[in-house]
Design a protein around this nucleic acid. Structure first.
Lengths: 255, 255
DNA sequence: CGTTTGTTTGAGCCTTCTCAAAGGCTGTGG
DNA sequence: CCACAGCCTTTGAGAAGGCTCAAACAAACG
C-alpha cells in the first residue's frame, strides 16, 4: 500500500467501547457522533453489530491527491467517507485516463467479494474516512442480511450512476457534459431537504474534470467561460461555482 | 406492457413438478434441461428452492426488436436469458440514444429492490428467456443469502462492465471502440474453455452498434471496412465477422 | 519575489458528424 | 423465377466540434 499522507486520529479508548452497561450493547461513542452513521452503510447495523464493527474501525484523514488503492491492488481496508470526495479512475496503457466515478459522504469505498476491479482510488479532496479491515466487511455481510442488502443497493445505485455517465460520454456535447457535471455536483452539495445547492466547490482541477467528462482541460475551461458569459453561472477563483440560473443550467445539460 | 411478439412455450405440467418422490424435492424437469441453470442465478438455489421458483416460471420467446420493459416502467416479471441478446438503452428527450449494456445468457434481466432504473429493455436478437414474477425474486432474495449474494455479484460485474465502457466512450477513438466491441463480443461467443471465438454474429445492426459505441452508423461502417482492409477481420453479409488476426485486433482495441 | 502549478485564451488541424447517393439483401407479389 | 419495394449498409464530400500546441495569465507556495 502506498499511502503518502495518512494520519490516524485519536480513537475512542477501547475500554469505553467495551464497558459493560445496563444496555448490553451501546452504540460506540465514535459512531454516535458520526455524520455518516444513519445514511451510510452502518445504518443497517444494530447497536451490537455497530459495537463489533466500531471496535476495529479507525478514523483517518488523507490529503488531496493521496492514492488509497492502486489499480489492480487488493485493499486490506474498507472505508466510509465522512467528508471529502473520492475519485475512481481507470488507466489505459498509454496513459489516457478516465474517471469512472466520484464518491461522496456517506458512500462506502471498497469492494465486497474477492475480485479487484482494476480501478485507481484517490482522494480528490482532503478526506476523512472511517476505516476497518476488509475481513470485517465480509463478516458483517454474512452476519447481517440487512447489511448485505444495503451494500447491494449501493452497488445498484453506482450502476445507475455509471450508466447515466455513459449517456453523457457517448451522446452529449462538451457544453452539455460540463453542465451535467455541475448539476450532479449541486445534487451532492444539496441540503438534506433535497433542494439543490446554488454554491458548488469543485472537487477536481480542470484536468480531472476533463478526465471525468471525456474531454480536455482546455475544452472544460472554454465551456465554463461560455456558461459564465451566458450568465448561467459565476466562477470565483476557478474552483467555486455559483449557479445563477438553475433552469438554464438544466436546459444546457439536456436533462 | 407493450409486448409485440410474445409466445409462451408449453411448460412442464404442474403435477410433474409437484409429484412427491423419494427425494422430497427434485429439480424440476424444466430446470434440469436448462442451459443457464448452473452458470446463472439459479445456480445458487438448492433443489427445494428451485422447485419453488420453477413452479412460477415459464419459458418465453421474443422476436428481435421486441420491447421487454419500457423506460421508467416497473416490470412485473424478471427473466433469465437462455439464448439471445438483450439491449439496455437510455434515451434523451430529443431522441438521442445510448445503449448502456448488452446482456447475454445466462444473465439475469430485471431489477431487485423497488426503484425503476429508467432504461429501455429490448430483445436485440430473437430471445428465449425463463421468466418469473418479480415477487418471487424478492422472496428468494430474503429466503436465500446465497441467492442474494449472487444477485449482488452480478450487479458488481455489471458495474465493472459499465466502467469499462465509460473508458471506451470517454477516451477511445472510433477505431479502438469498434475493435473493443468485437473483442467483447468474441469473449461472449467464446467456448466454455475460455478460448475466444474467432467467429462472431453481430447481435446488432450498425445503428445500434453506433448507439452502443457513442458513434454514428457511418463511422462504425467505415471502421469495420478499415479493419477488413487491414486484414484483421472478415465481414460476411454485414452481420458475420471472422477474426483473422486476434493479436492485431487486441492491439487496435488498446487493450 | 521568483517558481511552480493550474487556468484561460487563441490558431490551426484532425476526427468524427452530417448529408447525400449508390449498392446489397430480403421478402412479396406477379 | 423475376421484378420491385423497403431497409440496411457502404462510400463520398464537406462541415463542425473538439483536440493539439503554444503563450499569456493567475494563484499558491516557498
Amino acid at each position: 500500500m502506498t499511502i503518502a499522507a495518512r494520519h490516524v486520529e485519536p480513537t475512542e479508548p477501547a475500554d469505553a467501547a467495551l464497558r459493560p452497561d445496563i444496555h448490553t450493547a451501546r452504540v460506540p461513542r465514535l459512531c454516535r457522533a458520526c455524520e455518516a452513521r444513519h445514511r451510510g452503510i452502518c445504518g443497517a447495523l444494530d447497536p451490537a453489530e455497530l459495537l463489533r464493527l466500531g471496535r476495529t474501525s479507525t478514523r483517518q484523514t488523507y490529503a488531496a491527491g493521496t492514492t488509497l488503492i492502486a489499480a489492480g491492488e487488493r485493499a486490506e481496508h474498507c472505508s466510509n467517507i465522512l467528508s471529502g470526495v473520492v475519485k475512481l479512475s481507470k488507466l489505459l496503457a498509454d496513459g489516457r485516463q478516465q474517471v469512472v466515478a466520484l464518491q461522496f459522504a456517506p458512500d462506502f469505498v471498497g469492494r465486497p467479494f474477492a475480485g479487484d476491479s482494476d480501478v485507481l482510488v484517490e482522494a480528490a479532496t482532503d478526506l476523512r474516512v472511517c476505516s476497518f479491515p476488509r475481513r470485517m466487511l465480509e463478516t458483517m455481510m454474512t452476519a447481517s442480511p440487512a447489511f448485505e442488502a444495503r451494500m447491494h443497493r449501493q452497488a445498484l445505485r453506482q450502476l445507475d450512476e455509471a450508466r447515466e455517465w455513459m449517456m453523457a460520454l457517448g451522446r452529449k456535447s462538451a457544453a452539455e457534459r460540463v453542465a451535467t457535471f455541475l448539476v450532479i455536483l449541486s445534487r451532492h452539495a444539496a441540503a438534506p431537504d433535497g433542494r439543490r445547492a446554488g454554491e458548488i466547490d469543485l472537487p477536481l482541477c480542470r484536468a480531472d474534470i476533463a478526465d471525468f467528462l471525456g474531454l480536455t482541460a482546455e475544452t472544460v475551461s472554454r465551456q465554463l467561460t461560455a456558461l459564465r458569459r451566458q450568465g448561467v453561472v459565476d466562477v470565483v477563483r476557478s474552483r467555486h461555482v455559483t449557479i445563477r440560473d438553475p433552469a438554464a443550467l438544466l436546459c444546457v445539460a439536456a436533462m
